[in-house]
Simulated assay, not measured.
Amino acid sequence: MRLPAEPVDVEPAGGVQIAHAQRDDVQLLFHADHSAARPGPGLEQNGHYRERPATGLEHVVRCRWEQRVGDTPHVQRVLPDNCADILVTADGRALLVGPPTHVELPRLPAGTLIRGLRFHPYAVRTALHTDVAELTDQSVDLDDVLGAATARTVAEQIWAGSDVELAHTWGNAEPDRATAGIVRMLTAPGAPSVDAVADRAGYSSRHLRRVVHAETGLSPKTLQRVARLHDFLRAAEAGISSAAAAAGYADQPHASREIRALTGLAPGQLLRERGLT
């Protein structure tokens, strides 16, 4: 499958191909976290990342995005974000990548061009009719999930940035409202404990864990840990101690342990790498 080379609403692609990219490196770019911070060193000078809303799909899709690497390779620190993505490359490859639970450091070759669609954590099973619990830290060809014909159509829609066509595909998808509410509650700033969320939802803690894992591929605790990390990044301009407190870490040692476990860096190192200090 080969897709048109012309991007929509961005600079010309110039016929960029990524045929020589390593599959594992390319697929990891799905979850490169840019929502809470500026690009890391070298990215602004050597490429760009952009997110845009997917109009008409806000109930299912968090955003559509494009990553372009300039004329030198780029190493991207990919942080967990609780989401699953469909990724489409300039040579027509389309992959579904499940939610990651750990940091990765893919090396993206010069000239890489990727466009993607990022799903809300609670929408993947409904939108794609797949067992998201089997996708955690995994990637599969989109053909294997949707079938070759539908996968090609979806890949072309993502590549073209066609919100209208994507809305025809998923506009009627209806994620379970109860589960969506539970996930939002678990990942909101200052979220209550898992047991407290279960109590509010009228579930036992065990049943809540089963439901959340089935819909998101992640445990409630993992959802909360990852959300807390991104809350920390969004509050980073206040300084490490203030950002840690705002994100809900018990203290600075707690923040250091959790952030290093999820990102591979101490808080200060992470903020410096992302240009936030």
Rank of each mutant, 00 (worst) to 15 (best):
R2Q: 08
P7V: 00
V10D: 07
V10I: 00
E11F: 01
V16A: 04
R23S: 00
D25M: 05
V26L: 13
V26M: 15
Q27E: 08
L29P: 14
D33W: 09
A36G: 13
P39V: 13
P41S: 01
N46E: 04
G47K: 15
G56M: 11
H59I: 14
C63W: 14
R64P: 08
G70M: 09
G70I: 01
V75A: 01
V75F: 03
Q76I: 15
L79I: 15
N82L: 10
I86K: 04
D91T: 04
R93W: 10
V97H: 05
P99T: 11
V103Y: 04
P106S: 12
A110K: 03
R118A: 14
F119T: 13
A123M: 11
A123P: 05
T126I: 07
L128D: 11
D131G: 03
E134F: 10
L142F: 04
A148M: 10
T153G: 01
E156I: 04
A160N: 00
V164L: 00
L166Q: 02
L166W: 01
T169R: 10
A173H: 13
E174N: 09
D176K: 05
P189Q: 15
G190I: 10
R200Q: 06
S205Q: 14
V212D: 06
R225I: 15
R228Q: 14
H230P: 12
D231M: 12
R234H: 08
A236H: 02
E237M: 00
A238V: 01
A245R: 14
A250H: 03
E258Y: 12
E258T: 09
L265F: 09
P267V: 03
Q269V: 02
